[in-house]
Computed example of a mutant assay.
Amino acid sequence: MASIQNKPYRNRALDNKVKLIWLALYYGFARWLPESYSPLGKLLRSRQIRYIICKNIFLKCGKNVNIERGSNFGSGFEIEIGDNSGIGINCTCASNLKIGSNVLMGPQCFFLAFNHNFMDKSISIKEQGYSEKMVTTIGDDVWIGREALFTPGRTIADGTVIAARTCVCKDFPAYSVIGGNPSRLIKTRI
């Protein structure tokens, strides 16, 4: 009976070791392959190689997913990404990001998972540690422009368009077009 109870634990431990091998393969090799749409990237099949590797790392990885050159997603073990979506060139993602289907992401986007604590004035900010890790969720059919920054725990509703260099620090309704620093509603797509 004890061996039956321990078996799932052993499988989970083995799965984590295998995922670590895939992770080393991504960061040591596949991350540095050329961009997917460059002539050399097409020749080397960079997109397909990164897809196969990330499919073995991420918690969920849909069909036709494009992880671009230089993307950093920490361990990636909790990342979920839907069909026809991607992570842009040189993007930095929290390891627990959730991305819906048909999401376009420009280069150099940055997703934060937590912040520094700072409310106790009797202790230096450096010594106060971090807030709890928060999940950023991106809905379906979203377009994220170049160099967008996301504060922790944002929920990006379906159909949202985010302008380049936007600091997304609050949530907006579905089909919003947002931009600026701090982010604000520019117009609605409805």
Rank of each mutant, 00 (worst) to 15 (best):
S3L: 12
I4H: 15
I4P: 10
I4T: 15
Q5K: 10
R12P: 00
L14F: 13
D15E: 14
D15I: 06
N16I: 13
K17D: 07
K17I: 12
K19G: 11
L20N: 15
L23V: 14
L23S: 14
L25M: 14
Y26C: 12
Y27K: 13
Y27G: 10
Y27I: 15
G28H: 12
A30N: 12
R31C: 14
W32Y: 15
L33D: 05
L33E: 06
L33A: 12
E35Y: 11
Y37Q: 15
Y37F: 14
L40F: 12
G41D: 05
G41I: 09
L43Y: 15
L43V: 15
L44E: 04
S46D: 04
I49V: 15
I52P: 05
I52H: 15
I52D: 14
K55F: 09
K55I: 07
L59A: 14
L59C: 10
G62D: 07
K63H: 08
K63C: 04
N64V: 05
V65S: 02
N66C: 11
N66F: 09
I67W: 05
S71C: 12
N72E: 11
G74R: 06
G74V: 12
F77K: 10
E78A: 13
E78D: 14
G82I: 04
S85E: 04
S85T: 07
S85F: 08
N90M: 07
C91N: 07
T92A: 10
C93D: 03
C93K: 02
S95C: 11
I99M: 02
I99T: 00
I99F: 03
G100E: 02
S101C: 15
N102M: 09
V103C: 03
L104W: 05
G106C: 06
Q108P: 00
C109P: 04
F110L: 11
F111P: 02
L112P: 00
F114W: 09
F114T: 05
F114L: 11
N115G: 07
H116P: 08
N117G: 03
K121Q: 09
I123S: 13
S124Y: 14
S124D: 14
K126A: 11
G129I: 11
S131C: 09
S131A: 09
E132L: 13
M134G: 02
M134T: 07
T136P: 02
I138S: 01
I138P: 00
D140H: 09
D141E: 05
W143K: 01
W143Y: 09
I144N: 00
G145Q: 02
E147V: 01
L149H: 06
F150V: 01
P152R: 02
P152K: 03
P152F: 09
G153Y: 06
A157R: 00
A157P: 01
D158N: 13
D158I: 04
G159K: 03
G159T: 04
T160I: 08
V161M: 08
V161F: 10
I162V: 10
A163T: 01
A164H: 04
R165T: 06
T166P: 02
K170S: 12
P173F: 08
Y175T: 01
S176I: 01
S176P: 00
S176L: 04
I178F: 02
G179C: 07
G180F: 03
N181L: 05
S183I: 03
R184F: 06
I186N: 02
K187P: 05
T188S: 12
R189W: 01
R189Y: 01
I190S: 13
I190C: 13
I190G: 11
